[in-house]
């Protein structure tokens, strides 16, 4: 139902919000020794999610999760680079807004059709 109504955007919005959490986790752990930064490969994760929505066999929930490889490894084993996380967070926020406006457009189309305006 979700997919028929919103197309790809429903899954994309969930994924964007999940990625926001992952990047926020990286920012929170910027000073934790030994912490390995993670990110979501959006393409792979979206494919996996859509496949699951189409009734494919239960896919791995961690699909698309990737470890970040640092430009310069630090002594304490932490792989968070704040500038990269900030950019990724901003990019993700913009994409979230874009996806959200698609979803909103869909909703208003349906609402209008239902009201018969």
């Amino acid at each position: 139902m979700n997919e028929r109504l919103f197309g790809i955007h429903g899954a994309a919005l969930t994924l964007r919000s999940q990625r926001m959490g992952v990047i926020a986790s990286n920012i929170a752990n910027a000073a934790t020794p030994g912490y390995k930064a993670r990110d979501i490969d959006f393409n792979a994760a979206l494919d996996a999610r859509l496949a699951a929505g189409r009734g494919a066999t239960r896919t791995n929930p961690d699909a698309g999760m990737v470890w970040r490889s640092p430009t310069m490894p630090s002594m304490d084993g932490n792989t968070v680079e704040l500038n990269r996380e900030q950019v990724a967070f901003a990019e993700n926020a913009v994409a979230y807004s874009a996806t959200l406006s698609f979803v909103q457009g869909k909703v208003s189309t349906i609402t209008r059709a239902l009201k018969g305006e």
């Binding site: 919000s17 000073a31 704040l82 909703v107």
Partner: peptide, 23 residues
């Protein structure tokens, strides 16, 4: 610096959540 970063991230996330709620 890291505290500021967290506040910034939280603000953005909060704003997006509010936008989603309002639609």
């Amino acid at each position: 610096r890291q505290y500021q970063n967290l506040v910034q991230a939280l603000q953005t996330a909060k704003q997006l959540m509010l936008e989603t709620l309002r639609s």
